[in-house]
Amino acid sequence: MSFTVAIDGPAASGKGTISRAVADHFGLGHLDTGLLYRAVGARMLAGEVPEQAAQRLRPEDLGDPDALRGPEVAQAASRVAAIPEVRAALVDFQRAFARRAGGAVLDGRDIGTVICPEAEAKLFVTASAEVRARRRHRELLERGLEASYEVVLADVRERDARDAGRSTAPMVAAPDAVLIDTSALSIEEAVAAAVAAVEARR
């Protein structure tokens, strides 16, 4: 029997960390769907047509997540995610993973609304733009990358506007999603809130 957990939210809200922790806690598979778009974005930067890159994407293309974490790839991912043909090409990939034997946790922008509207548990993880920018800025510095907080904050706001404003599958909380604002929460507190929310749906 499959059990699907859909976790949505904006960049740097903590949904990736929470999703991995929830998957580990319940023994479920985990898919960071943002990596799909980052992989397509990286291929676009390398000169490929985004629609064709999405159609040819394979699980092994996600083998080195760190190579897909840079700010340039992140912006490219947000741009290709606004292309309806790219999203359509990746839907089946995500839905098949969601219904895998043993259950799954998927995190992204439209999991609870478009990819898995029938998910047994839905969470929407968010935080203020300023908090998210500070997290992303610290992460970039820890990886040895040059970064200005002001530039990171502008990028976060630009991505929010693009993700929430696109015509196809905009980022929005599902009506039945549990909202978790991590602005003032520790990682442990945020994970505990998510685990409790999922447990209530099991």
Rank of each mutant, 00 (worst) to 15 (best):
S186A: 05
V198M: 06
V198C: 05
L57P: 10
P117H: 12
G29T: 11
D107K: 09
A147R: 12
G63L: 01
R56P: 03
V195M: 06
D32A: 07
S183F: 11
A67T: 13
A161R: 15
I7K: 00
P71C: 08
E146I: 05
Q75F: 03
K122G: 03
F26P: 03
D64R: 15
D66A: 15
A161H: 13
S186L: 04
Y37M: 02
L45G: 01
A53H: 07
D66P: 06
E48G: 00
I180P: 01
E120A: 14
G34M: 07
F26Q: 02
F26D: 07
T182M: 04
Q52S: 11
Q55Y: 00
D155M: 01
L68R: 06
C116Y: 12
P59D: 03
G165T: 07
Q94K: 12
I111H: 09
G112C: 04
D155H: 01
L179Y: 03
T168D: 15
S167M: 10
D32P: 09
S148D: 15
A23I: 12
A67Y: 01
E199A: 15
A74I: 05
V22C: 10
P84A: 10
R134T: 07
D163M: 04
I7H: 01
L36H: 01
V49P: 01
L153C: 07
L153W: 09
I83P: 11
A129E: 14
R157N: 13
S19K: 09
L31A: 06
E85C: 08
R95Q: 15
S128H: 13
C116F: 14
A147Y: 11
V151L: 07
A23G: 07
L57M: 07
V105W: 01
V49F: 11
P65D: 08
R69W: 04
V22K: 05
A6I: 09
A89T: 11
V86G: 12
H25V: 02
D163R: 10
L141F: 02
D24S: 14
G165L: 06
D92P: 09
E85P: 10
P170A: 14
D32I: 02
E142V: 00
A154P: 05
A194H: 00
D92R: 15
S128L: 11
A74Q: 02
V49R: 14
P50I: 05
S2V: 14
V178Y: 00
S2G: 06
P170N: 11
R162P: 09
F97I: 09
S148W: 00
V105K: 02
A98Y: 09
A96V: 15
A147S: 14
